[in-house]
Write a protein that binds this DNA or RNA. Structure first.
Lengths: 241, 241
DNA sequence: AGGTCAATTTTGTATTATAAATACTATTGT
DNA sequence: ACAATAGTATTTATAATACAAAATTGACCT
């Protein structure tokens, strides 16, 4: 693997993290030794060790003398870490992963909308509204597709005034991207979807906690149902073979 | 700071992380240089750098040549990281933090209960039930106080069959500990609380998604109200001074 | 005053050496 | 033959040193 000549530690961390999330080391539960990684990527042991430490900090691996570097069970992984999420996205997530993302979205986003209805400042409301107007552009095909959609969801988290929800911005962004990856639509956001977003914003602005909550929950729920149907379809297909 | 002679990197990471979460470096937004940290804690630059890398991986700091090591804004912190949560707990969280924890619990736990009602296996149901019986012991004053309570909440997350919810076990555990820290009760779980837990379990076992959701939501909601009242009380007191 | 460039400081990377942990092997004694 | 024990080898952990690269600072020049 070719690694260029700046930020070796960061790059190597990225390469190894990506490889792990792509399941390249899953079979043996064991990674190459420090020495082997160093020679394979042609970096010093120092850089290798620092990359290993970063992955250790994210819960992906652990290392002990004479035992080498071993993969940790997924329950130890920091699945809410920005980098880990990026690697998940690069690892071609399957339908099950999409379902898991949606289940968390269903937990987080309605709650965030309710908090936003309760606590959002004028600035924060304006920011949400701004993403809506950008979405209208996207409907006509302008601008970066679906980015305004993503920003809408993120701006609600921001308006929750809760650092934990705010930290989940990357998570929701990744979840939406995984979703897009499956629905696979290069086309713009539909009129119906746009209207649902407007509704959520209206309730938030009006301070209607419960209604904002419900509005945010409805869409996600129906998406989950769709995915669940698709999964059972696939299961049936596999049984037929 | 005295650091003993094993796992230097880990220990130093812990010390620095704790210090950061206690706000010791918040004023200047800048940490000592690698060299200074090395001499202060009497470890080599290698160990120091590896600790720095681990904290970087958790989003707490960043470092650049000639600029030194700087604190990152809280929105970059991995607030769902196990270590970060431990350091938050050690940093004497305030009422606002407790409120933020409760808001996330209100989002996560009812959703997890609903998922558990939908997907929990027999094993997972048994595990939940087991924690309930341990809670009954605790009522009588036996065993590690409130640990069974914590385990109850964790076992529901485990039964959600969703890796993201499962990963939130440490988060919920920390949230509960912060709560305990404020209610400050060494005494056992009350009969009323126990009954609420039993209800949640019953609905989960019966596969009643919505009821499990509601049952899990009710308690947390009333706790949030209590905390919010306490906060407004304190605000009024501060205004009088 | 303003811009260019060199000096300085701090992190980034490489290299080498040694210590510590632990799995594996061989030996020894019964 | 077997078990306990001591020795060996492997791999990470830590240290120390040297140099490279980035970025700020400041001096110098025009």
């Amino acid at each position: 693997m070719e690694i260029s000549h700046r930020n070796l530690t960061q790059q190597l961390t990225h390469e190894l993290g990506k490889a792990i999330l792509q399941g390249k080391y899953n079979e043996f539960k064991k990674l190459p030794s420090e020495a082997d990684i160093s020679t394979e990527y042609d970096v010093s042991r120092t850089a290798t060790r620092e990359a290993i430490k970063m992955l250790t900090a994210k819960g992906l691996i652990s290392s002990r003398p004479r035992q080498g570097i071993k993969l940790k069970d997924i329950k130890n992984w920091n699945l809410f870490d920005t980098d880990v999420l990026r690697w998940i996205l690069l690892g071609k997530p399957d339908l099950y992963m999409l379902k898991h993302f949606l289940e968390v979205r269903l937990a987080i986003e309605p709650a965030a909308a309710a908090l936003a209805a309760k606590f959002a400042s004028d600035d924060e409301l304006m920011r949400i509204e701004h993403t809506l107007s950008k979405m209208k552009f996207e409907q006509s095909g302008y601008d970066d597709t679906h980015q305004a959609d993503i920003d809408f969801h993120k701006s609600i988290l921001l308006a929750s005034n809760n650092p934990f929800f705010i930290q989940l911005q990357t998570f929701i962004e990744t979840a939406l991207k995984v979703n897009l990856h499956f629905t696979n639509r290069a086309d713009a956001v539909s009129e119906k979807e746009y209207q649902q977003h407007v509704d959520i914003f209206t309730f938030i602005k009006a301070g209607e906690e419960q209604k904002a909550f419900d509005a945010a929950a409805t869409t996600t729920k129906s998406t989950i149902r769709l995915v669940e149907e698709k999964i059972t379809e696939l299961k049936l297909l596999n049984l037929q073979e």
